[in-house]
Structure formats: structure tokens, C-alpha cells
Simulated scan of single mutants.
Amino acid sequence: MNNTNFEPMPPVEETSQTGEQTTVPEYTRQPRRDKMPRPAQPKVRRVGFFTLGIALILTGGCIAASLVLKDFPLLTVAKLAPLVLVALGVEVLWANARKGDAQLKYDLLSMFVCFVLICASMCAATVPILLRYYGPEREYTERRLEQELEQQVHEKLPAGSVLDGYSYVDLNRMEFDKNMTLADLKTEDTVRLNLTLAGTYADENAFAEACAQLLPTLRELGVDEVDFRSENGDDQWELQIGGVFQMNSGAQELAGQVTHMVRYWEDDEYSWWEKEALDTYLAQKAQNDQQEPQPEEDSVENTLEESVEINTEEATVVENG
């Protein structure tokens, strides 16, 4: 077995000397960059927000008060809705006077809400007016006055002078009392009667005389317009008057306004004609009838002879068959 001689390695000398420390590179922090100063922004003053708050408070308070208090004048308050615009204008002037370095910014949303409140308030103020003018209270009052008028006409006119009648009462004004009577009617109100008179009348003068006798009583009841009518057999009389002058006219003045209608039958149907118009129509019709050609007697006889010959020929054919 061969012995291999290994030479020992020289000892490693320590390079580090006692007391010396290993130097480690240190991290050096970079100085922080200072931020760029932002430019100073002007102050912003919003215009319209204060007015919106006041409008909301007042609107809500008025609506709540109208629900609690029965006699709260909500209609009067609604008429004052344009004062919101006055308040908004005052706020704009006040903000412009005190803005200084501040920049004014108009709050469009607040202004829009104020505009909506104004429109809603105006509508709320208009609706009661429309209900007052076209509502059920007015109609009920008019119908009640009509019944009262018809009852008084029936009581005050001579018995048997009127066969039938009905009335119209129009309250042509905004304010009225639902408990009013005929005595409370004013000149702007309209009262109209439609009366069917009894009896027979020989001519226009007789009918006008009957109508004139009833006018004083109708004037006392406040009637402004009257439609008189009478029908007897084939005659019909009509008289329509209205206004102060005609209501105070006599029989002679009224006779010229009477309309005389005549019933005319034709083809089992009738229609009403004025006397002069009917006379003209009948004369024209008679003239047209005279102008139409009449069938000649010879043509009639020839037709009869031809029909006899045809019947004879048919009889002969039957016998031969």
C-alpha cells in the first residue's frame, strides 16, 4: 500500500485587525421636495339658498295651518306667492353688496324650486276660483232659484193663463251667497222664463195683448227675458222679448214681433211654417204641378187594347195546346 504524503496547507492569516470595524455604507435620505403652494381660491357665496329655505318654511307652515284652522285664508296667502321673487331679488342685492372678494354663485336648483312653488301657489289660488265659478255650489244655487221662481210665477200669474213653463237663472258674478233668494239677484244676473200660454188667439194682436198683461208681474219677479209660446190646432204663436225696453212695451209694440206658425201636413208628416212662407211654397208647388205633362187619353186606350190582344193570344195558345 503506497503512502501518499500530503503537505499541510498554510494557515490562513486573518486580515482583520483587532479593534477595526467593518464599514457598512449608510443610506442617505434625500430631502423631501416641498409641495407647490396651491393658488388661493376665492370664496364662493351661494345666492338663492336662503330664499329657498324661507319659502319652504312658509309654504309648509301655511299648508299645515290650513289643515288645522278651518278659516285660515289660504287663498289670500297663495296670492302673495310672488313675494318669493321679491325675497330672491333682495338676497341677490344683499349678496352683491357684501361679496367683497367672494365669488357669487347662483343656486339654480333653489331658484327652480322657488319657481315651482310660485307656480303651485298660483294654481292653488286659481283652483278655488274656478270651483267657485263652475263648481257644484253655483249650480245648486241656480237650480234652487229656478224652482223658487217657477213657484212664484205659478202663484202670482192669473189662474189658467199658463199651461207650462220653465226658467233659467245664471249668476254672472264671482261672489255669491249660496243661501241667497230671488230678492238678492243683481243686474248682472240673468233670469229667463219660457211660458206656454193657454187659450186660442185670432191674430198677432190678440196674442200680444195676452203677453203684455203678464209682463208687470214678471218684471216684479226680476225676469229679464221671456219666451212666450202658444199652440192651438194648426196654429202656433211665438214671442221672444228681452231687455228693459221690450219688457216695458205695450201690446201694440209687441204685436209686430209675434211669429205666427202654421202646421202643414205632407206625406203623413207635418212641419211648422210661417204663414207667408207657406203661402209662397204652396203657390210654387201648384205652379210646378200644372207644368208637368199629363198622359194623353189615346196612349191609355192603346195600352189597354194591346193588353187585351196579348191576353187573347195567350188564351188561344192554351186552347190549341
Rank of each mutant, 00 (worst) to 15 (best):
G89T: 04
L163H: 07
A81F: 05
E314Y: 04
T76C: 00
E314R: 11
E204S: 08
D268L: 11
A206Y: 04
A81W: 06
A206G: 09
A65Y: 01
C123G: 13
N205I: 11
W272R: 07
W265Q: 13
R219L: 12
L157E: 08
G256T: 03
F49K: 11
T51W: 05
G19Q: 02
A124E: 13
V44Y: 03
V47E: 05
A120N: 06
T181E: 09
V258S: 12
L221M: 08
P37H: 10
L130A: 15
T76A: 09
T316R: 15
T22P: 06
L104H: 03
E137D: 14
Q151G: 11
G242W: 15
K156E: 08
A251D: 07
S110Q: 06
V244D: 11
K105M: 09
Q240F: 10
L193W: 01
E296V: 00
I241R: 06
R173C: 04
V226Q: 08
T187W: 03
L130C: 13
F228P: 06
W273K: 10
Y27D: 08
M1S: 12
R192H: 02
A277N: 11
G165K: 13
A183Q: 13
L104F: 03
I54K: 09
R132G: 15
E238S: 14
T217G: 02
D164I: 00
W265K: 06
G48Y: 12
M1F: 04
Q287Y: 00
L109V: 15
S230K: 02
M36R: 14
V127E: 07
W272V: 04
D101A: 11
V300H: 10
L195V: 05
V68D: 07
V169M: 06
T259H: 08
V90E: 01
Q103P: 00
Q290M: 12
G243V: 03
S230F: 01
N311S: 15
L93I: 07
R144M: 06
E314S: 04
K43E: 15
A208C: 02
Y168K: 14
T181I: 02
K275Y: 00
M111W: 13
L278S: 04
D170K: 12
E269F: 05
L117I: 13
V258M: 10
N5V: 13
E297K: 15
Q21T: 07
T280F: 01
S66I: 02
E139F: 15
E306S: 08
L109W: 08
T217I: 10
L145N: 04
G242M: 08
L83S: 11
E142A: 09
K186F: 00
E13D: 07
E225Q: 14
N288V: 08
T200E: 12
V162F: 04
Q290F: 00
G89H: 00
A255T: 09
A40W: 07
P216Q: 11
S307C: 08
A120R: 00
V169K: 05
C62R: 00
K35A: 12
N311D: 11
A212T: 12
F112S: 14
V191K: 05
T303M: 07
E139L: 14
L149P: 01
G222K: 05
G100D: 12
L58N: 06
D268N: 12
F112Q: 09
